[in-house]
Design a protein around this nucleic acid. Sequence first.
DNA 1: GGCCCGTATTGATGCAGATCAATTTCAAGG
DNA 2: CCTTGAAATTGATCTGCATCAATACGGGCC
Lengths: 229, 229
Amino acid sequence: MSDSCQNCAHFKDSEWAVLGGCNAKGLDCARRSRHFLPGEPVYHEGDEPSGIYCVSSGLIGIRKVDAEGDSMLLRLVRPGQTFGYRSALTGAPHGVSAEALKDVRVCHIPAATVRKALAEEPGLLMAFFRHLADDMAAAEVKVMETVSASCRVRFLRLLMALGGGEDAGLLELPVSRQDIASLIGVRSETMSRVIRGIEDEGLAHFSGRRVEIPDPHRLAEESAGALAA
Amino acid sequence: MSDSCQNCAHFKDSEWAVLGGCNAKGLDCARRSRHFLPGEPVYHEGDEPSGIYCVSSGLIGIRKVDAEGDSMLLRLVRPGQTFGYRSALTGAPHGVSAEALKDVRVCHIPAATVRKALAEEPGLLMAFFRHLADDMAAAEVKVMETVSASCRVRFLRLLMALGGGEDAGLLELPVSRQDIASLIGVRSETMSRVIRGIEDEGLAHFSGRRVEIPDPHRLAEESAGALAA
DNA sequence: GGCCCGTATTGATGCAGATCAATTTCAAGG
DNA sequence: CCTTGAAATTGATCTGCATCAATACGGGCC
């Protein structure tokens, strides 16, 4: 009872919030909570969609591999966010893969339930449309940054994004450095050098996955102006 | 009369096809055909959305500029395709700008009409969702390619994409070489050198915007395998 | 403690593509 | 025809990041 969608801490920020009480109940009945270990795949590129996933805890990575076999981490999915909805709604096979990056608990809402909810609450599709529009905007920014910004600047911007609204100059990298590197599209060796450079300048202090940022304002300046010395 | 949406050559392939006859009539009444000269902007990044655009003839370029001021051509919109629908549907300001790349004729469907059509035909939103999902998939591929493939390979792939279903080894570049360069994220000087290289190998022959491809099959092979000599 | 294995770091070197600077080509207009 | 300006090409050089190859670190486990 306490373990229901409406009691979920993230419910009100999710797409499901547009559902009225009784439809939300349908969600509860149909959903199944599943657990994944770090590295375990939730679905692969090319798989047929089976429904929509919702992260309750942990972290999901959305990954894509190209023809030559090397993969890239496209984005992260945090607790409270949905993923896999694109294919679930269009019916097309997944164009990307999803995998657990930590111990993860996700809820799976089967396609049939999704279809029913869509039919009964038209606002739901619009909620997912907005989500997709946001993802698309982020993808466009990513394309721009990848071609125009140096990997140093891209990493600084990632740090700011990870910092979120936190004013405290202390944050934790959610994933390994290899994955961070993959996220900004560079080799892990380069990642090391970039981190070392930032460390040497005193812009930030890294120990393991802990990052301390003495002067967030300075970091913001440097990540904005690509030309800053 | 003959100049109506239903008579439009592209109608059946567009999102509007899901509309029944009477709703399509509403489209006809409300839409306004507009003309743009090459280089003229349709809307800018940050503008408030005013409706959905539909290309009848010519070519539209979707562009984005970053903080440092340099811009990139993200994608092309061809006759029969819609653009600007993302902001029109979410209400958020445009995240990209749209400009005419040739003499262009577009139809503009005002936001109010769009809202009405959405309310009367639920399938319409799904049609746009599919469109956005396709754009998103393309953006993901673009990110991957930009980080992993050489500019030569990216250009060859663009050539294949522009060739479309054409088996004939003859195609026309839709835009200037600067814009082609901007489309794959390289400088125009590099573009020249890449084209020269391809020319020298006899993979394709360029004169102005005309491109002749003696052996499309060979081009396909080279664009697939990044490692091909 | 010592061993082992995966992650992270560091160094040396190479190359793709950017950058700067000159031409050359070409289309439009007088 | 000549002029003009934008687009395209070419050359010389520079640099950021990849690549290849070692080495160091760190944490689980015997």
